[in-house]
Amino acid sequence: MTNIERIKKMGIEQMTDFILGTMDTDVCDYCEYRDDDCKGYTAPCMEDKEIIAKWLKEEYKE
């Protein structure tokens, strides 16, 4: 099995753990509240795993 085959077989939780373990950036960059709401501290802060799992489930945007 190649690495890409292994990755394709991962579920959301496994993929979330994998991404968090390899990230060298702030997970907040992927949070839905990262813009205006976050800067004003009016948005609820999400757990890192919750942010990544939600991002994985979103449709790709170019």
Rank of each mutant, 00 (worst) to 15 (best):
6 R>G: 08
28 C>L: 05
25 T>W: 04
48 D>T: 01
20 L>M: 15
52 I>V: 15
57 K>Y: 00
33 Y>P: 00
35 D>Q: 10
7 I>H: 05
14 Q>Y: 00
51 I>D: 02
44 P>F: 09
60 Y>N: 08
45 C>R: 10
37 D>R: 11
26 D>W: 01
39 K>F: 10
44 P>M: 03
4 I>F: 12
42 T>Y: 13
47 E>S: 06
2 T>F: 02
20 L>T: 02
10 M>R: 10
22 T>I: 12
42 T>A: 09
8 K>L: 14
7 I>Y: 10
37 D>Q: 11
38 C>Q: 08
47 E>R: 07
7 I>Q: 05
34 R>K: 15
29 D>S: 11
22 T>K: 15
47 E>F: 05
47 E>M: 11
32 E>V: 11
1 M>D: 11
1 M>L: 04
33 Y>H: 15
54 K>A: 14
27 V>S: 05
9 K>D: 13
4 I>K: 10
35 D>N: 12
21 G>Y: 04
29 D>P: 00
27 V>Q: 03
16 T>R: 05
50 E>T: 13
52 I>N: 03
46 M>Q: 13
2 T>S: 15
58 E>T: 08
26 D>R: 09
14 Q>D: 14
34 R>Y: 10
61 K>W: 00
28 C>M: 11
11 G>C: 02
54 K>W: 03
51 I>H: 03
55 W>N: 13
2 T>W: 00
11 G>F: 00
46 M>G: 00
32 E>C: 07
48 D>L: 04
5 E>N: 09
16 T>M: 02
